[in-house]
Design a protein around this nucleic acid. Structure first.
Lengths: 332, 332
DNA sequence: CCTATTTATGCTCAATTTGAGCATTACTGG
DNA sequence: CCAGTAATGCTCAAATTGAGCATAAATAGG
């Protein structure tokens, strides 16, 4: 316990622990819905943003909506002109920082949702755009080589070395090693949030500078695109959740067109996971789980032998959505 | 889409879909925190309740607390006089029914938390008590035989038969089979919420009667103890989350005393999972994951050969809390 | 037509992981 | 000493997983 903290540190800690502030008028707060809306196009995982890619879309708790989930679905569908296949609540928090942006109208509770849509819509409301989510998390894409972006390994070492005590330095080193798969550990694609939070603490993302967190590397790296408030953390939460989900529930299907080749399907999973998969094993898994069936048609030539087109088996999907699937992600 | 619905049906559907109502004054709502506080004593999983076991403890968003999580921790610790080891956000919803209870002061957002504590406290504030969670979900305990409580199989069949169309009857039958492991399917201990929701829809729990849902079995079974509002659904959510969590993260330890035998540990896991485990395999798993270490002491005689006492390895726990464990639950 | 290239698809194999049991050991209470 | 009850040590077969080899079916270029 530290008696005094540098300006910004309290807010920083809150940010990191996912521990939002609470409003001062007990019981009464303002609330909004925030969506992490995901689509995959051409092997790129995309997220819907507003304000030049600096914010996630958010909507009000409007009286016309009957439920939180329906409310999210409704305003997102209005903005994207596409139906949402899958909506799942992510996390609820109340960030003090958000207060200022709202003009001091009480502290806001934000309820965030993960939503999936089948394809990238053509028309978006002004200001909205689909962004490659790896623009925000370049270190999360391991599809071309597992190397971390250049400044990272050194910056992580510097952060670990900057610990106040030997014990803290050791703890930091271990934490970095676990989060980023250093020192011979395996990269765990699900630790998206933990990595972002570590980088925030280490002052390696712009949001940290904004919140007054120091960095021990000069010039301070500013990894990935920044977002307003804590939207990038919410996005990290969404990506982490989705990466975890695809390993045990067939949600990828929500992101696919009605018919597709097995390689299409694999590329989509790889895009989300940020990792390449063993082709034959992937196909074995998908087929043995009977998640898909042949349409009888073939895909247009893609450079080699033509591939069969598949579609999802609605009956099985329903069952699996409930009861679970096996993980398609590799270990090595 | 039905044009008209019987009274209570809308509320019922909301209840079932976890889709809460939204307040009429856009943006401004009242909010509360609800805790599912779990402890395991003598092989019984217990949950802290108030109001004679009919409600989960809830606290206000008080200005003295700096965050949602800290707020939960604070008022729960004040009530139980025990520190909480683990706190995790469960789900946020706004139930219309809750409105009346609050005297019409806007619609309430409820943010629920799962919290674990090491042992059953001696002193509780008036009205609070620890209850065996299987009092509320008798069908969830499969430690003594996998048979469902007597009225269930028949009542489920009756519900399936009461479907309006052949397609609906088939869908209901399949849903019941998946949820309850019928027709040769495996019992999936994580489907706690799905089972409760099915029983609610089928009118087999008191809350359904309260909300105006019909039942097709006479006399209508009223399975398990009821709770106010949708607290039993929140409890189901907490149990489901905890059952899922113990299979891949070493959270059981938060519920154990400082030292324990491997059988103690196994009994606790079994209590939570509602299923018996293969002893030797459980021990192999725990040991090979190096989650525990011997204290050097032995347990007082428990009827047979004395057992070694173990304690948790703080270092490993920290790492696993992050990176994961293997599942200790069986398939058969 | 023949060949190199590219992707699809079928199959095999070894290393692990899991599910189940057998056997032995170390106590307690007659 | 014997029966009863747990703890603990080991073994074994089935299932799952990670990696590759081999073949098939197309295209592009000579």
């Amino acid at each position: 316990m530290r008696a005094m903290a540098a300006p910004g540190l309290a807010s920083a800690r809150r940010h990191l622990r996912n521990e939002p502030m609470i409003e001062n008028r007990p019981g009464s707060v303002s609330a909004e819905l925030i969506a992490v809306l995901v689509a995959v196009t051409a092997g790129t995982p995309r997220v819907l943003t507003i304000a030049e890619g600096t914010s996630l879309p958010s909507g009000p708790l409007s009286p016309e909506h009957r439920s939180l989930q329906a409310g999210t679905r409704s305003w997102v569908e209005r903005q994207t002109h596409h139906p949402l296949g899958y909506v799942e609540q992510l996390y609820t928090f109340a960030d003090n920082d958000r207060n200022a942006a709202l003009g001091g109208f009480g502290r806001a509770i934000s309820i965030s949702y993960l939503a999936l849509t089948r394809e990238q819509p053509k028309t978006l409301d002004g200001g909205a755009s689909w962004r490659n989510w790896y623009d925000y998390f370049p270190w999360e894409d391991h599809r071309q080589g597992a190397d971390l972006p250049a400044p990272l390994p050194g910056a992580l070492r510097a952060w670990a070395q900057a610990g106040a005590s030997p014990a803290e330095r050791r703890a930091r080193k271990q934490r970095a090693a676990i989060a980023f798969g250093l020192e011979g550990r395996r990269w765990n694609e699900e630790l998206v949030l933990q990595r972002y939070e570590l980088l925030y603490e280490a002052g390696l993302v712009s949001e940290a500078a904004r919140d007054g967190i120091a960095c021990h590397t000069t010039p301070a790296p500013r990894l990935g695109h920044a977002m307003r408030q804590d939207h990038r953390r919410i996005l990290a939460t969404g990506i982490a959740r989705l990466r975890a989900k695809i390993t045990y529930r067939p949600v990828v299907f929500e992101l696919m067109p009605p018919s597709f080749t097995l390689l299409d399907l694999q590329r989509s999973v790889e895009a989300l996971a940020g990792q390449l998969l063993h082709k034959q094993n992937f196909r074995r898994l998908v087929e043995q789980q009977a998640l898909v069936e042949e349409t009888g048609q073939m895909a247009g030539a893609t450079g080699g032998r033509p591939a069969k087109l598949f579609r999802f088996r609605a009956d099985i999907l329903q069952e699996r959505a409930y009861a679970g699937t096996k993980p398609p992600l590799p270990r090595a």
